[in-house]
């Protein structure tokens, strides 16, 4: 029973933090202060990186467009990697670990998710100009799997970096 208490606590905290963060994300203040600005920032960052090798790209709000082909993608809420990051953050907050490791893990995790999401948007942008079928397949299947794999790998690596007895301790003691 004693060995299962930390697991039970992890489960409960994980679900509570997850629900809390998702609920907070859906509120209008969070949408206007975080989600939408980040979505537009993501488009601008992506455009900034693309212009390093392709100057014929413009960012208009949430829209990234090629001025040569006219093709455009709209990065909508839900496409900005925030939801996936929330799952990772909730797991790291729930897992018994020193706060220093949690903070480092969350920061690295956010960077990993968002960096891969930028690559995802760039790849979809060019795939769409080449083939709509390839765009749809990568959009619906390939990138979902890769993003999930990315989060899972970050999670595994983070757990391996924890002190050996971190998971065996009651989290409140940390």
């Amino acid at each position: 029973m004693g060995a299962q208490a930390p697991m039970l606590r992890f489960s409960v905290v994980f679900v509570v933090v997850l629900v809390t963060l998702f609920a907070a994300e859906l509120t209008p203040p969070a949408q206007s202060a975080v989600v939408l600005p980040w979505t537009e920032a993501l488009v601008r960052i992506t455009r900034g990186l693309i212009t390093l090798f392709d100057s014929r790209v413009i960012a208009v709000g949430k829209i990234l467009q090629s001025t040569s082909s006219g093709f455009a993608i709209s990065v909508e809420a839900g496409c900005n990697g925030i939801e996936v990051a929330i799952i990772l953050i909730a797991a790291m907050l729930a897992f018994p670990a020193p706060w220093k490791h949690r903070v480092i893990g969350i920061l690295v995790g956010l960077c990993a998710v968002q960096a891969l999401n930028v690559v995802r948007v760039v790849s979809l942008f060019y795939l769409g100009q080449w083939s709509i079928e390839a765009f749809e397949w990568a959009h619906l299947y390939l990138w979902q799997a890769l993003i999930m794999l990315d989060v899972l790998i970050v999670w595994l690596i983070w757990i391996r970096t924890l002190p050996p007895n971190a998971g065996a301790q009651p989290a409140m003691a940390r």
Partner: peptide, 21 residues
């Protein structure tokens, strides 16, 4: 805009497909 916009997320022309469903 008079050009096709292919949504890479919720609400796009290709349907509701976020980063991860």
């Amino acid at each position: 805009p008079p050009f096709p916009v292919f949504g890479a997320g919720f609400g796009g022309a290709l349907g509701p497909t976020p980063t991860v469903s």
